[in-house]
């Protein structure tokens, strides 16, 4: 564990807290992509259910895995049951088939071993890299977003962004290098760059998130 990874994980926790805060205080899921949330639930299920076959590294690791699986299912429940009337499926139209299909193909090409757990892990890594796209698509389509939603997306982007200095640190300090996680993580961070540009130039200067 190093400071970048810890801050990254903290940022991930903050993002989920922001999302839950937005939904429970406004009693709505307006502007939130159910598809992105469903993809994250799938990402966590395919990566963290390694708990079931004994992949227990530390209390920290186990507690985080359980939290991410549990909170993602709770978020899906909130969107589908109590806040269902506030969702507009007509703007959440990104084609999931491309993302899931692409991640599946990548997991068969890039994995460390042709075994079910390794392919599942690789699938979760590639899927996570693109899971935010339906959410960014909604923001792009509507041309604006509530501030709290943009804070949520920013915290989520910061999470994988912070993993990059973590990988650099681990490469030099520990000789650890995980090329699949690194390449997918860089792709994931690049996907956020446009968003971050507007977030830093507008939202953090007190303006509303609006596309030009």
């Amino acid at each position: 564990m190093n400071i970048f990874r810890f801050l990254g994980d903290l940022s991930h926790l903050v993002s989920i807290w922001l999302l839950l805060h937005k939904m429970t205080t406004s009693k709505s899921c307006t502007g939130i992509s159910f598809k992105t949330q469903a993809l994250y639930a799938l990402v966590f299920a395919t990566r963290y259910l390694d708990l079931l076959y004994g992949s227990w590294h530390s209390m920290y690791n186990v507690a985080m895995k359980i939290f991410f699986i549990g909170s993602s299912l709770y978020i899906l429940y909130l969107i589908k049951v109590p806040f269902k009337p506030t969702r507009d499926p007509a703007i959440d139209t990104f084609k999931l088939e491309y993302l899931v299909g692409g991640a599946l193909i990548m997991s068969l090409i890039a994995n460390y071993e042709y075994s079910f757990p390794e392919i599942l892990w690789s699938f979760s890594i590639w899927l996570e890299a693109v899971a935010i796209l339906p959410q960014l698509f909604i923001i792009q389509r509507t041309g604006e977003a509530e501030n709290i939603t943009t804070h949520y997306v920013a915290a989520l982007g910061a999470y994988r962004g912070l993993y990059i200095p973590n990988w650099l640190y681990r490469y030099f300090a520990e000789g650890f290098f995980d090329p699949i996680a690194v390449i997918a993580g860089i792709i994931q961070t690049v996907i956020y760059l446009d968003f971050f540009y507007i977030y830093f130039t507008k939202v953090l200067k007190g303006q509303k998130f609006e596309l030009p």
């Binding site: 590294h57 690791n61 985080m64 460390y112 071993e113 973590n166 000789g175 650890f176 290098f177 699949i180």
Partner: peptide
């Protein structure tokens, strides 16, 4: 790949 089987990252 060193230790990539040990997936301790989240």
């Amino acid at each position: 790949y060193p230790d990539t089987q040990v997936k301790d990252e989240l």
